[in-house]
């Protein structure tokens, strides 16, 4: 009975996906538009990194950290680590690669937040939407990331943009999930209080639900950024420039030393991004 599975011809799922991708590629105008949007955002961030002199940047990053975290228990060690880490990256000659990597991560994360937070809100408001979106998110996260590279190239060409897209798909689920969770966890009596005083649905969202879900949303933002960063090496296989590219080349040339230094630079960036986003979510007073 069960061996019926091998008796019938294999289901043509692969063919269906091929057909779908082929059909999608026929929508040139649409994908070109998206490509230029993403390239525009990425370019703007990259331009910002390029115009600011490196020494100034090494001062600005700790300054920004201090500004964001001064009220939330800032550790001096983080400031010291940032200065030392950035100096090391400069010294190793990875500065531009580093900025390219950060630009990719920030672009992907920014788009993930812009799309993911409203989607999370929608999920929280409707059980039906939650029932549909949840498995899609599981799928997005568990499908091996390499698989996204193939249609990404077909639709968006080679370079940073398909890198951003594949990072986006891989990194968006946490912020959607955590926004949904955060809003659903707002205590029922606070929702009742907001309703009892005549809040509209929008006022309730802006004044009560999102502020109270903030901690959870920020934890999602943190995870999203980390996942986006974890995609940079993978994305370099389709031509995304940056530290990932250096690692990928080192693997190709069996160059352990340079592979390690580029990897170390990624670790430094990861720690800086993680600590900043994590600290903003560990808000004391709420």
């Amino acid at each position: 009975m069960l061996n019926l599975a091998v008796k019938i011809a294999p289901l043509p799922i692969a063919q269906w996906i091929d057909d779908l991708v082929e059909w999608l590629t026929s929508l040139h105008a649409f994908f070109n538009f998206i490509t230029s949007c993403i390239a525009g955002i990425n370019g703007a961030i990259q331009w910002l990194f390029d115009v600011v002199p490196i020494p100034l940047m090494i001062v600005l990053v700790p300054a920004l950290t201090w500004l964001l975290l001064r009220k939330k228990g800032l550790h001096l060690s983080l400031i010291i680590f940032e200065v030392a880490g950035l100096l090391l990256i400069w010294n190793l000659g990875y500065w531009r690669d580093m900025t390219q990597t950060v630009a990719l991560v920030l672009t992907a994360s920014a788009i993930a937040l812009v799309l993911g937070i409203p989607l999370g809100v929608w999920m929280a408001k409707s059980d039906l939407v939650q029932a549909i979106v949840k498995p899609v998110l599981d799928f997005m996260q568990t499908m091996p990331a390499f698989v996204y590279l193939i249609p990404a190239v077909a639709l968006f060409g080679i370079g940073t943009v398909p890198g951003v897209i594949s990072a986006l798909i891989f990194a968006m689920p946490p912020v959607v999930r955590m926004t949904n969770l955060g809003i659903r966890e707002v205590p029922a009596d606070l929702i009742e209080a907001a309703d009892a005083y005549g809040s509209t649905a929008w006022q309730k969202l802006i004044k009560v639900q999102l502020p109270l879900a903030r901690k959870s949303v920020m934890a999602g933002v943190n995870q999203t950024m980390m996942l986006a960063l974890s995609m940079v090496v993978t994305a370099s296989m389709i031509g995304a420039m940056g530290l990932g590219e250096k690692v990928y080349f080192a693997v190709g040339r069996n160059d352990a030393g340079n592979g390690f230094t580029a990897g170390l630079a990624i670790v430094i960036i990861a720690i800086i991004l993680d600590r900043i986003t994590q600290a903003t979510s560990n808000h004391k007073e709420v």
């Binding site: 205590p187 009596d189 606070l190 009742e192 209080a193 502020p211 109270l212 903030r214 007073e285 709420v286």
Partner: peptide
């Protein structure tokens, strides 16, 4: 007015 106060913590 609510039993568990229902004040907005933020």
């Amino acid at each position: 007015v609510f039993q568990n106060f229902a004040l907005f913590p933020n």
